[in-house]
Design a protein around this nucleic acid. Sequence first.
DNA 1: TTTCTGACTCGAA
DNA 2: CTTCGAGCCAGAA
Length: 109
Amino acid sequence: MKPETLSFFDKVYQVARQIPYGKVTSYGAIATYLGAAKSARMVGYAMNASHNKDVPAHRVVNKKGLLTGKHHFDGTNLMQQLLESEGVKVVNNQIQNLKSIYWDPSQEL
DNA sequence: TTTCTGACTCGAA
DNA sequence: CTTCGAGCCAGAA
């Protein structure tokens, strides 16, 4: 694949797809890995458009471990349930023990 | 074509 | 401690 032909969104999708089961990462981490540290918003926006793609958007949260995007899922707690079904503990829209399940692309890839 | 809005983050006041 | 502004890019109206 020619990176030049890939839009920012596509790159985000590729990275998001590599998030391991039971792990999570942040919008900013992905943006930084792609060389656009200030484009965290774009990552989130990309997730919004990732409904058709095979992208585990529920594994991407904000840097505080908050499920800021849960509102964009069908149910009110669908995102949380998806995470919990992967072994991720979520309380009050916030991921517990985030540090231990955090997956940083610039560190893992 | 222009305008607006967002699943973010950081730094400054 | 809290609040606010700026930077980034794509897609819809």
